[in-house]
Design a protein around this nucleic acid. Structure first.
Lengths: 274, 274
DNA sequence: TATACTGTATCGGCAGGCGATACAAAAGAA
DNA sequence: TTCTTTTGTATCGCCTGCCGATACAGTATA
């Protein structure tokens, strides 16, 4: 299951398209900044180092502008030449910002010991994700010793509309907001069993609201089972989710649900009353 | 050992100071981009959400410029209001770039299974780091089940001059380059045993060159033991390091060295001949 | 030898970023 | 309460510094 998620991530929110249509000029909007981030985002759709022209094409900029921005980002350490000087790759300075992001996120900081306990208890892969509009962004993965693939998945993102964790999150939102998220999602059938129909999805959401969690089979990857539950802030608004994942070769969905869900609920309850 | 590394990271390279002195104007340098990254870097020195004025102060910009850049970065998702709307924090979009960074780094991709094996074999904390001039940036941490603190340390950085992994890296560089790195480092005594003298450090480096690895005690944290070995590219240049860490309450340095180093060397040899 | 890429450097014009300024609302402080 | 400070937000003319066309040497691929 190495190649499934490559080269880019599974799901991406509709970008803020610069100069989209005749939208009024925003006097506070600094174009160069958006362009710079666009240059960095050029790497989202590749799995190898990029040349200047390739970056320009991906960022929809001319070569001159790209040259200047790449030059600047290189000086700052956000872009570097790849190991064999064959092209540009993201620079190491980005790690500093992820460090900040995690340090300053109370949920992530508090969650670590709980999630390690959870992994030990269930001996399956445990993931923590944060909500970003239409998707869930993975911020931490804790896996059992046996599993060696996909250990590093900080930053992976998955759609809300077709994941157990996503349904659990939708269950904590008002019906109209949930439906809005589903509608705005580009609903892809990742497997034959992926739900893409709004009402079918809302049925699962209803079940998630009733149970507090929800299990799902083969929504993103064939043979994959997942159980997700939402983490909420003190006002009850969802801010993230915890997912436990396993394989259909190890469990039936029902067995998995019965064995895992009580422990999972215990964890998210602890995390939600912060 | 929770608070040691807060709020900012342990070590930071001298930043490229914008407009430093009377340095010739670089016609390719885009000032706004540098300012934007400076705004994001404002969070490096805080452990709580920042107000606009605080960001402006940290980034050495006036409030107007800060306002415009923060506005832009917010629209793009790189900055957001904190959970209680009390200030600004880094946004979730940063995770996308870390994902790219890891995806496109061959070492990280290849290393994961090796490092998991290594952790299982030695049952101690295992870290992979990449070189960034004067420091090592942690990109992955694998820890034994028992340990629950500091699980999430992607992006943490430590100085080269006073860590076992750093010495191992210096051992793979020509003498003058190694000395240059030591000299340019701001050598802080994190503990009473921290080495800050250039020649004393180079002695350890020589030992590292001989052995292929090096052990160290209490260089960064009291009571901490570490063994580090460098990972090199096919040309023999160091690109990163693997560190195994434990506590003086569990081992003497000699025991630790004898028990751990053979397995560590096996791992870095496998990673270096890629 | 062509052809199409690399990465890099230069430069005049004018858009758009700069930063001073202003203001309502909220949070303390007296 | 009243005074003071800080919050986030909005406006606008000046002029700087970004824009992007253009050029060129070096290197693969054919």
């Amino acid at each position: 299951m190495t190649g499934y998620l490559s080269p880019a991530m599974l799901h991406r929110n509709p970008e803020l398209r610069e100069g989209e249509g005749e939208e009024a000029h925003d006097p506070l909007f600094v174009r160069s900044v958006a362009r710079a981030m666009g240059v960095l985002s050029a790497f989202h759709t590749t799995d190898r180092p990029l040349s200047l022209s390739e970056i320009a094409r991906a960022a929809e900029l001319d070569r001159s502008t790209t040259q200047r921005i790449v030059h600047t980002l290189r000086k700052l350490g956000y872009i570097q030449r790849d190991q064999y000087d064959q092209g540009y790759v993201p620079g190491i300075r980005i790690y500093d910002h992820i460090f900040d992001s995690m340090r300053l996120n109370r949920l992530i900081q508090r969650a670590v010991p709980y999630l390690l306990d959870l992994r030990s208890a269930v001996n399956e892969r445990v993931d923590l994700s944060l909500i970003d509009d239409l998707r869930l962004v993975y911020t931490a993965r804790f896996q059992p010793k046996s599993e060696v693939i996909h250990a590093m998945m900080v930053g992976l993102s998955v759609p809300i509309y077709c994941t157990s964790a996503g349904w659990a999150v939708l269950a904590r939102l008002p019906e109209d907001r949930a439906r809005d998220i589903i509608r705005r999602s580009e609903r892809v059938s990742y497997t034959p069993r992926t739900l893409t129909d709004e009402d079918a999805i809302m049925e699962r959401v209803a079940q998630a609201r009733e149970q507090g969690y929800i299990a799902a089979a083969e929504q993103l990857l064939p043979g994959e089972l997942g159980i997700g539950a939402a983490v909420t802030d003190s006002a009850g608004h969802p801010i993230g989710a915890v997912t436990i994942t396993s394989l259909m070769s190890d469990w039936t969905l029902e067995e998995f649900d019965h064995a895992i869900s009580p422990t999972l609920m215990q964890t998210v309850r602890a995390l939600s009353t912060g």
